[in-house]
Design a protein around this nucleic acid. Structure first.
Lengths: 213, 213
DNA sequence: TGACATCGATTGTTCAACAATGATAGCCGG
DNA sequence: CCGGCTATCATTGTTGAACAATCGATGTCA
């Protein structure tokens, strides 16, 4: 059985990603420690990990709050994605185990799309891109992607229009997978570049619409 | 004035990178807390940050030790570098402020090379590559590079033949900078690819030589 | 010699306390 | 009536001590 603190960190991350604490919410040490049944010190250790991952913001003497990514964060996240994902896809082998994960994520997305379960669509979408990064077989790049993917989910939570954010990309995922399998990595990488540009534009558009009303 | 813990984290990272604690050394909570004049709880929070950055390894109920990167780690670090650095250089502008940092790092390397101060040569080398990544203007990619650069320094410490590791790359840095300024980003990116392959081979060679006595 | 039980040291976690800081509310002067 | 100042208060930062849980080593016995 893993440590209490490790479990606590994962539990907290899941709760934050699932939207239990809205972005920007302040997390009081005392009340949250009591709620979770752990001591303040243990909770603070978990806070340090999550802050390092960018999921929460830590301001000295003002406590921690759930991160609320802004436009600059979204831009930077997509920049990082464009550095990593297409290159991983370009160099990836169709025989790599992660391809199975890609296929499963596509199918999961299609199933959830029919059920109009947008949140699950979003999860499947992320799993698809996670599998792409996994093609690189690089723990450090996977860690980077895990962190920025979590931040991106926070941005999605702020927007709160999951259908517009996730639905259009299910068919694109399917198409991208087929391109990769039939035409190879480089062709798929080029397609993914455009995909990511479009995705970024979608998110940023929703953001500015938020700010204006 | 920053927080004690933040200062503590930075101080610990510097000490580790500087080789004060050799890779693999176990860091006892009690003795280290006493030595640094902080409490165990505060020290443990700093440990969580450094563990998240990959500088120390944390095994439940067995404490933390300074990370000692192996061949697999070095391979992964260079893989990540090849994903990020050439792309940043290819898209970088010669007018970017980081170019000044690149130039300064090159000159610092040349000065330290003449003085046969290998450690400083290594530092200048890292500053050069850090400036390359800074061309991308991406906080998240900079954070990734900061972490893997710190890990790489640990690997260098294990090898302990700083001249062979750092000296050959001073002239290559100068050449790479000139290529970037005179022939543009893409040409420099191609040169950097070969540079990184050579650098990786140098490190891995020293590693295997270590294992054989 | 080797398996096993015991011991000791270290980590994991909690609790209580106090100092330091930031935010709030209320007061005062204009 | 309003803006700035001050005192208060709640929260975080840090410490120290305590106890349980776990791992490694020591020593015992067959």
């Amino acid at each position: 059985m893993p440590d209490v603190e490790d479990t606590l960190t994962n539990a907290l991350r899941r709760r934050i990603i699932d939207g239990e604490f809205a972005p920007g919410t302040r997390l009081s040490e005392i009340s949250l420690a009591e709620k979770l049944g752990v001591s303040r010190n243990t909770l603070r250790e978990a806070f340090r990990v999550l802050a390092e991952q960018g999921l929460i913001e830590h301001v000295p003497h003002r406590g921690v709050s759930v991160a609320s990514p802004g436009v600059a964060d979204v831009v930077d996240i997509y920049r990082a994605r464009r550095y990593v994902e297409p290159a991983a896809l370009a160099a990836g082998s169709p025989l790599h185990p992660a391809v199975t994960a890609m296929r499963e994520a596509v199918e999961q997305g299609e199933t959830s799309l029919e059920a109009r379960d947008w949140r699950t669509v979003g999860t499947a979408n992320m799993a698809f891109h996670d599998a792409i990064v996994a093609l690189a077989d690089s723990p450090r790049l996977e860690r980077l992607f895990r962190d920025i993917a979590a931040e991106l989910r926070l941005a999605f939570l702020e927007i709160d229009n999951p259908e517009a954010l996730h639905a259009p990309f299910v068919t694109r995922n399917r198409a991208l997978l087929e391109t990769f399998l039939e035409q190879g990595g480089p062709a798929a990488a080029a397609e993914l570049q455009e995909y990511l540009v479009l995705s970024e534009r979608t998110v940023l558009g929703a953001f500015t619409r938020l700010r204006h009303g």
